[in-house]
Design a protein around this nucleic acid. Structure first.
Lengths: 105, 105
DNA sequence: CCATAAGTACGATCGCTGTCAAACTACGAA
DNA sequence: TTCGTAGTTTGACAGCGATCGTACTTATGG
């Protein structure tokens, strides 16, 4: 289920998995960056202080929780926030969990 | 800080601590039961499948995250959901995280 | 005053998860 | 074809957190 190349099926969110995904600050940072970008990003363009393999792990957790979608473009792995789907399943959650107004001067 | 007998200071919620508190199903169950009760409960009246010492631990985590208040009445330790404060800090979060339509037996 | 009840504190255990390095695969360019 | 880039897989390891039993504290009731 939820193969590396497929986006997760919409609608079947598991609250437990979602919370487990959100509890890690690195993963919330990924979500925040995807959100701020406004478009899908290559993994490599997301700035997180961990190794490549750890990054792969975090993206996998987010994908399996249904929070992001992923697909390949050549050798690049694109990731995008599933904002609408998440918002529908858990209204308000993203606003709580993602630091958006953090206008760092 | 946040002594065993005092309720946590209002307003200073730490998102990380809140999420860590919410990620455990036992703790979400506690919140759900406090919410359903509509009034403060003795620890002993909250039904969770763990030992007394583990229960104490869970209540402590919830209190330090600011999600519940606790105080003594004789030897009984009363706990109550800080619904208003949590709702103000994280609008919608409790509705997402607490199974309310689930008629918990 | 003593016994019981309600929680707390303290170690100890144990599984899970975040982490990394190294080896591997897949694609694109030269 | 060969090389380099992008990401995955696979093990291994370390630390954290959920759990428990036992001992302790404190208040209520007889």
């Amino acid at each position: 289920m939820s193969d590396a190349r497929t986006a997760p099926e919409p609608g079947d969110f598991d609250l437990q998995k979602v919370l487990e995904a959100l509890v890690d600050p690195v993963r919330r940072s990924i979500l925040a960056q995807l959100d701020a970008a406004g478009e899908d990003l290559r993994c490599g363009l997301v700035d997180i202080p961990v190794s490549k393999s750890t990054a792969t792990h975090h993206f996998k957790v987010l994908r399996e929780a249904g929070l992001i979608r992923q697909y390949y473009v050549g050798t690049a792995r694109m990731s995008g926030l599933r904002r609408a789907e998440v918002e529908e399943a858990f209204p308000g959650l993203l606003d709580i969990v993602i630091p958006r107004h953090a206008t760092v001067p």
